[in-house]
Simulated scan of single mutants.
Amino acid sequence: MSVLGILGAGRVGMALARLARNADLEVLIAGSGDPASLADGIAAESPGAVAVTAEEAARSAYIVILAIPLGKYRTLPATALAGKLVIDAMNYWWELDGVRPEFSDPQTSTSETLQKFLVDSRLAKTFNHASVWELENLARPAGHPERRALAVAADQQEDMAQASHLVDAMGFDPVPAGPLANGVMLEPGAEAFGADASAAEMRTMLNRFWTSQRGLVVARNRDMPPAGC
């Protein structure tokens, strides 16, 4: 897991790059422009990270984090990402992405929509529900009494383990949220989104999601039985 790719050189991408460099990972980061034009800014914001193309980051990295606007997901290099563990750190904002029914459908999560496009990749959902400020300021070593938690959703146990290991290495306590479909628990509007929470507090939030207003709407649209039944 020594090489991490980050697609997206905005504030979130840069914050994640700094955390990864602090964890002694090699970081390849791609923005929307020519890598040469981004190199100086990336060197200043995240020393040691290397500006590359999206294709190069996708092909060379062991794990790839997506930190681009969600509405641009079809521009991702799907072929280069085939076989990779891809971490979805994106959120749907209609003000930025436009009104997109596929992202607001309560029958599915945005990560599941992304998985249908990246059909040959393995997806995990995490980092998206932390604010940029949290990523920039709240990373702590393991065992620190003020260490914050980040939830992780993934379908495969190995992918859950790898994504959780990355979260831990980058300064946060990983909390399993279940399968990728449970990524809906981490989206805007859910209690865990933006929560400055400990691991115990995060587990409590995830456990009561299905009794929340958002959880009841999702469960009804997925034909799930009411919580507790």
Rank of each mutant, 00 (worst) to 15 (best):
R11T: 13
E56C: 07
W133Q: 14
A39I: 08
F193Y: 14
W133P: 02
A139N: 01
W93K: 09
A130H: 05
V52Q: 13
R74L: 11
C229M: 13
Q115T: 03
L118M: 09
P106N: 11
T79S: 14
R222C: 09
P101Y: 06
H129D: 09
A124D: 02
L123G: 00
N91H: 12
A151D: 03
A197C: 10
L138S: 06
Y73E: 13
E146Y: 00
E187V: 14
Q107E: 13
A219D: 14
R74M: 11
L25C: 06
A23E: 10
D159L: 03
M1D: 04
L114Y: 01
A192T: 12
T108I: 10
Y62S: 14
N221D: 13
S198V: 06
L166M: 05
A149V: 04
R147G: 02
I6F: 01
A181W: 09
T126S: 08
W210S: 15
T126L: 03
A54I: 08
H129R: 08
V50E: 14
G215D: 07
G98V: 01
P188N: 07
T126I: 00
G71W: 04
L16A: 03
G5N: 04
K84F: 04
D105V: 11
R11Q: 11
E102V: 04
A20N: 10
G189C: 12
G171W: 00
